[in-house]
Amino acid sequence: MKHLKSLNKKAHLINQAVSPEDVEDVVAMQTVVGCTATTDPGWELDPFGGLGSLCQPMESDLYGCADACWWPAQVPDTMNSYPDWGEGVAKADKDWRKLDGIFEDGE
């Protein structure tokens, strides 16, 4: 890494993470109950405890991640558990208002 220079902010952040141990330290300090931070990127936080390395806006590549079961605790995984989630919402960045949640907390 020492011969490579980071060109953008995200790359700079990655450069700052000297070792995986450091990344885990940051995560351990920053994560509020129910957050996923470590799935690179996490859903709520990036591994550095910030938002700089997240997919933003999240709608722009939502299915790219949901289809791959990336944050199954926060985003319905369409690979296996909820294959129909997102049906009729082909373009999440345009039709995000139609996206409903899975409320598995019923009585």
């Binding site: 859903w43 605790a73 989630w85 996206l99 949640g101 899975i102 598995e104 907390d105």
Partner: peptide, 14 residues
């Protein structure tokens, strides 16, 4: 305070 994106999967216990 972290203002985050929606949690689309809500369970009885997170």
């Amino acid at each position: 305070m972290l203002v985050s994106v929606p949690d689309f999967v809500r369970r009885v216990l997170d």
